[in-house]
């Protein structure tokens, strides 16, 4: 795979898909068994020192010093990268300004969202050309996640190439391009738009009053291929694309479902991923 300069590239997949391992290889922290990888043209094995100078990295776990204050953490990482906070303040200002009121607080005492902002500030302090973020939004609430992606968009506009991993499918739509990963393999790489457009099967959204019974009934129906819950609707595919909405509707009416709704729906990236998973298995 290739990531273009200035791109916001997403590695999407569940735990165990190999996202972290790939990032660590790119970060020169692990050595691959086979094959090669370059960052800005530098080989991840031979030129690891150069890469370590120009990449910003935020590992999956919160990896700052909990017993140091916000300010001390930031200053420490600045000196480690032979720079100062004031020198690159422009880049981190938008993010850091939100945690600045707490700069005397120990990092361990920050809330989840603030920790994340501090970690991002520290990863950015040396003006990296490439930013690698390993599951920055895992376990973070929806509001903080949204804010975080807005920050990433801003950074991208400043010309930083960003490689980010996430288990949340909905975040895939926010990337320029994504790689869908599962069990160490890349299932597909494309823009989210193309991935969704590449989904050619007919997809129906179905709901009724009793969703659980609805799933069970649909799965027992011989013309159903898959039926999965998606928010308030079920997303259902037929055995082949000839299966019409009315067929589902009639079947479910016979099963006494109330307030039935059946209609065509555009797939989401999650549908695409699940389809790919299905093919894999």
């Amino acid at each position: 795979m290739e990531v273009q300069k200035g791109e916001l590239f997403g590695l999407i997949g569940p735990d165990g898909a190999g996202k972290t391992t790939l990032m660590r290889i790119l970060m020169t922290l692990l050595i691959q068994d086979k094959g090669m990888a370059t960052m800005n043209g530098f080989d991840v094995i031979k030129d690891y020192k150069k890469i370590r100078n120009m990449v910003g990295y935020m590992p999956g776990r919160f990896s700052l010093y909990q017993d140091l204050t916000v300010e001390e953490n930031l200053n420490f990482f600045a000196t480690v990268f032979k720079t100062t906070v004031s020198e690159n303040y422009d880049l981190i200002r938008d993010i850091y300004i939100q945690i600045e009121p707490f700069k005397k607080r120990l990092a361990g005492k920050l809330s989840g969202g603030m920790k994340q902002k501090l970690a991002l500030s520290c990863a950015l302090i040396h003006k990296p050309e490439i930013l690698i973020l390993d599951e920055p939004t895992t376990g973070v609430d929806a509001v903080s996640r949204k804010e975080f992606w807005e920050m990433l968009k801003n950074l991208q506009q400043k010309g930083i190439t960003i490689l980010v991993s996430t288990p949340y499918m909905d975040e895939a739509m926010l990337c320029n391009r994504v790689a869908l990963m599962q069990k160490g393999k890349v299932l597909d790489i494309d823009t989210p738009r193309n991935l969704v457009d590449g989904y050619t099967r007919k997809l129906y959204a179905i709901r009724s009053n009793d969703m659980h019974r609805l799933i069970l009934d649909l799965r027992s129906y011989e013309k159903t291929d898959s039926a999965y819950a998606f928010g308030q609707y079920l997303h259902v595919t037929g055995k082949d694309d000839e299966v019409e909405a009315t067929e589902f509707e009639n079947f479910l009416m016979r099963k006494n479902h109330q307030n039935l709704e059946v209609f065509d729906i555009q797939p989401t990236i999650e549908d695409v991923f699940m389809e790919l998973l299905g093919i894999e298995e």
Partner: peptide, 13 residues
């Protein structure tokens, strides 16, 4: 243990 070594190793230190 805390994962900070990962960040230090990934730095020019």
């Amino acid at each position: 243990e805390l994962g900070t070594m990962e960040v230090l190793l990934a730095s020019p230190l």
